[in-house]
């Protein structure tokens, strides 16, 4: 076990443990979207879980830090909040904010983080961006809204069919990146339950069962 300081409070944690998880388990909330417990290598892609670490330059994402003795972590410095708010506003600018009609309303990852960071759900400075790509119209069980999706990739982490093969993927690139299914073969080996499990991993209800 290693002793570390989080916001000046001494915490004991396993050497080499994931700092984001250690923070969350000890009651220090850090905004995050792409992290799932038990992943071997964090994608570090949502860019929300910033903290500052003494003797390191500027904020770093806590999901990419492993615990070592003597680590001194601060979770709420102005630079940390600035980057977190900026990342959240960017995500919201590409998100179809229509909470009243969204199945994720009141349990949505973005709502939680916005409340915590005191950011309005419709930031004014940034214009709204929309993708022109379609969802998965031809999928028998799943519906997908690319303009709700935050591309955290959590669905891909849990999406494995019977033979361990994924039935969803990231497709395209850059701003146009979407979650996609492809080909009939992918469906035959997969049960309805497996599809819904994968939809449940979505923090913003971009992915859901068709009858949702």
């Amino acid at each position: 076990m290693a002793k570390i300081l989080i916001d000046k409070k001494e915490i004991e944690a396993k050497e080499g443990a994931n700092l984001l998880q250690v923070c969350l388990k000890n009651g220090f909330y850090i905004p995050n979207l792409c992290h799932l417990e038990g992943m071997d290598s964090p994608p570090a892609s949502c860019r929300l879980c910033f903290v500052e670490i003494e003797e390191e330059d500027g904020p770093v994402t806590s999901c990419s830090v492993t615990v070592r003795a003597g680590l001194k972590v601060t979770t709420d410095t102005p630079p940390v909040r600035r980057l977190q708010r900026s990342a959240l506003k960017l995500l919201l600018s590409a998100h179809d904010v229509d909470c009243a009609r969204c199945p994720a309303n009141k349990k949505c990852g973005l709502q939680t983080i916005a409340r915590f960071l005191k950011v309005g759900l419709k930031p004014k400075q940034l214009e709204q961006l929309r993708k022109e790509t379609e969802g998965m119209e031809d999928h028998p069980f799943l519906r997908y809204d690319p303009n709700r999706c935050v591309l955290c990739g959590r669905c891909l982490q849990v999406c494995h069919g019977k033979q361990g093969q994924p039935f969803l993927t990231f497709a395209k690139r850059g701003f146009d990146t979407v979650i996609a299914s492809y080909g009939e073969k992918d469906l035959s080996n997969t049960t309805y339950q497996e599809f819904t499990a994968c939809a449940q991993a979505c923090p913003v209800a971009a992915l859901g069962p068709k009858n949702d």
Partner: peptide
Amino acid sequence: EIASCEVYGVATF
């Protein structure tokens, strides 16, 4: 012997 969605994901990148 990989899922075709993976091939598609790589190709579109």
